[in-house]
Structures are given as C-alpha cells and as structure tokens.
Write a protein that binds this DNA or RNA. Structure first.
Lengths: 111, 111
DNA sequence: ACGAGTGTTCGATAGGAAGCGAACACTCGC
DNA sequence: GCGAGTGTTCGCTTCCTATCGAACACTCGT
C-alpha cells in the first residue's frame, strides 16, 4: 500500500464556499475558537497539532471546537502520525468572506 | 418647554468603537437579527419602527433583539411619538469593523 | 381622561452549546 | 505487542439565550 499516514476516519471538511454567513459568524463568536484561529494565524501551515494550543479547556471540548471550525471552512486538518495537524484556510476563507478573517486577527486578545 | 417628543427612558447606546469583536460577531450570529439588520439596511434612516419588521417572533423577543443590536453598536434608536424608530449605524460600524456589515448585507436571505 | 397603539420588563420555559470525565481508537517507539 | 501519547466519542451537567405571555409604561387622538 501507499505511504498512507493514518487510515483513521478522515475529518469531514467543509469548503468555505459552502458555508452560510450565519455559520461563519457563529463559529467565530466564541472566545476559545477566536484564540485558536489567532494562534493558528500566527503559525505556519501544518505546524500545530490540536493539543498545542493554549486554551483553558479539556481535550473533549477542544476536539469539539475544531469540529466547528472545520464545519465553518476555517480550518483544514490532516493526520500526521498520531497527531492531527492544522492549517488556517486563509485564502479560501478570505475569498468567501472578504475581510472577516482580517477583522478577527487585527484585534489584540488583551482587549 | 421645548418640543421634547418622549421623556421616556432613553435607550442606552453603545458606540461601535467601544464594542469588542466578539460582541459584534455574536450580535450578528442570529437569524432574526440578521433579518432586522438587512431590512434596516434597505430602508431609510428613522423610517422603520421596531414593530414594522417581518420576523416570526413576538414583541418581547423583538425588544430584546433590538437591545442586543444597540449594545453591539449596530443600531441607533430614537423615540418618535409612541414608537421607537431605528437607524443602522452604517458608517460608524463600518469604521470600526470594516467589511463586516457589507459581508452580511451581500447575502441573499434565501440561501 | 379614556382607549388604542407601541415598546419594555418580568417570570418562566425550552432548547442548544460548552464544559468535563471516562471510555475508546489509532499511531508510534521500544 | 505493550504502553505512552494524541484525539474522538459518549453521557451527563450546567449555563446562556431565545422565546412566550402577561403586566406595566408612555403617547396620542378623540
């Protein structure tokens, strides 16, 4: 067989083009997910595993949040060995919702 | 006395500049409020009273939604006789959250 | 000053979303 | 093939929000 790293249940992805505005807004309207998106934006693609984020929630909740982000077309995931690495779908999301991502990233978390 | 139309409890307004992103997103992440904002955008300033919107909710809920929109700096209200008329704070909100309003208005409700 | 019209507030209910802990699934190094 | 590391799923609790009906407040015409 080919070099398939992980024949685990592939994560379901939704392309930004198929995402209603309401879904996108709802996905971003959460403090934890906001942190995820921001940290993700500050890191290179596929460099961050799900567990590597500094958020005050357990694994279960974290997993759920990533599912929401996937469903909103904000994040793409790929299995790499035992861990699941992430990528922010910057350009695709920007094409679908111009300015929205910038808006969220332009904010200081301290505010 | 001056021509004061209404000495009712003046509605509390929040300027968009004082609104956190999260609040703005949360305010827009609701189907009913989305309709309100869109209909409001399609009408002239101060031409629509609260009760004049085609949404499937009662007066109580409606009142609450407008309170949320005010709190997010999206809507300005003024008492005009017995009714409370509204205005979408287009430019102010646009200045604070560039592109966000356009994003919401550019959508077909049918989608 | 009464009554119709319009909004807000109160109290209560129902639904959804976020959170946790525990159990399970998969990958990899030893 | 065991065990540590990593994520997902499940069941349950908790909290927040949307909603309603009813009561109240204000304005205006008659």
């Amino acid at each position: 067989m080919a070099q398939r790293t992980g024949h685990r249940a592939a994560p379901e992805h939704t392309h930004p083009d198929d995402v209603p505005v309401l879904t996108a807004l709802a996905a971003l309207a959460d403090p934890v997910r906001l942190v995820l998106v921001r940290e993700l934006a500050g890191s290179g693609d596929w460099t961050r595993s799900c567990g590597s984020f500094d958020v005050p929630v357990g694994k279960a909740a974290l997993s759920h949040h990533f599912a929401v982000l996937r469903g909103a077309g904000l994040v793409e995931q790929r299995d790499e060995g035992p861990r699941r690495v992430n990528r922010l779908r910057r350009t695709e999301f920007e094409a679908r919702f111009p300015g929205l991502l910038d808006l969220v990233l332009r904010e200081t978390p301290t505010a």
